[in-house]
Simulated assay, not measured.
Amino acid sequence: MYRRSWLSLLAVSLLAGATTLAAAQGAWPTKPITMIVPFPPGGLADLVARPVAEAMSRDLGQPVVIENKAGAGGGIGMAAAAKSKPDGYTILMALSSLTVIPEADVLLGRPAMFTLPDLRPIARFTADPTVLAVRADSPWKTVQQFVEDAKKRPGAINYGSSGNYGTMHVPMEILAQNAGIKLTHIPFTGAGPAVVALLGGQIDAVSSGPATVLQQVKAGKLRVLAHWGTAPLGALPDVGSLKDAGFNAEYAQWSGLFIPQGTPEPVAQRLRAAAKFAAQDAKVKDVILGAGSPVLYQDSPDFDKYVQADAKRMAEVVKRIGKVE
């Protein structure tokens, strides 16, 4: 009888524990969520993250708090997200450099900051070609003039980026290789600081998402010479592509939401639904479009395929760029 009573008590305890766990999972989230942005304020990731976080907060019923964790071309923040506890309370708003950094780690023979399988794609929000921006008082009115000057003065023209192998470095190297020119690369911690340096005359050019430079273009402080896309840009319809100018150079800078691999499926699906809610929210669309980047949403399955394909393309680009210390 004692054994039967003990077993009954154990069964009740296990049932209560399972019920409590199920209830806890059903109630998720029960506290604020941190959205890591692996770049400083002012760049594309931050511009997208802030309206998205606000909309997701409304849908989830808990604050989604932005944490800018910059450095190493986004690698520091991406690694922090990849290594965080997979409970849904740490999420990542990344740019396309996410597919480049692991390849750069292999090329340089350094310990991997993270690997692509460490993170699970949840939703893509934007996918824009980068644009070549210079100061409005620069001597270059066209990309052809920029390239011809660079040929005459190898290494004399410099450009800023968000870090080695980042989304501002890779497209410039693609152009340099295709055009047969040598440019000097000056890395910063993010797009925001690089654009500030351009405005201040410390550097000559940047390649960035349209949203990062659009307001300065409208203010007459910057000029866009070309873009890395294949179709006209909605925000800059009068700007031609590098292909139009005779250069076989393409590159798209995308932004998307990721979570640590191993996050419980119910939590992952709840975040997926909140991301979709944000992508369809009128306020989010208006804010991102106003910055110069239309929302180009992709749900988790399609975004996963997109990331894998992008990683294959970028692996070849990184090999062509070679070692950059």
Rank of each mutant, 00 (worst) to 15 (best):
223 R>E: 00
243 K>N: 15
216 Q>F: 11
180 G>Y: 07
196 V>H: 04
237 P>Y: 13
165 Y>C: 01
167 T>N: 11
193 P>D: 10
233 L>R: 07
232 P>T: 15
214 L>I: 06
186 I>P: 05
166 G>F: 03
222 L>I: 07
201 G>L: 13
217 V>S: 03
170 V>P: 04
165 Y>E: 13
176 A>W: 07
217 V>Q: 00
171 P>S: 07
209 G>Q: 01
206 V>E: 04
181 I>A: 01
164 N>P: 05
240 G>K: 13
216 Q>S: 12
170 V>Q: 05
208 S>M: 12
176 A>G: 07
209 G>M: 00
222 L>T: 08
189 T>I: 12
206 V>D: 09
167 T>Y: 08
241 S>E: 06
185 H>Y: 01
239 V>W: 05
166 G>E: 05
173 E>R: 06
192 G>L: 14
167 T>G: 10
171 P>D: 06
208 S>W: 06
226 A>V: 10
163 G>Q: 05
233 L>G: 08
240 G>H: 03
241 S>G: 09
239 V>F: 12
241 S>M: 12
189 T>V: 06
175 L>P: 02
175 L>G: 06
228 W>H: 11
196 V>R: 07
235 A>W: 03
224 V>W: 03
199 L>R: 11
165 Y>L: 14
228 W>S: 13
190 G>F: 04
178 N>P: 02
171 P>Q: 05
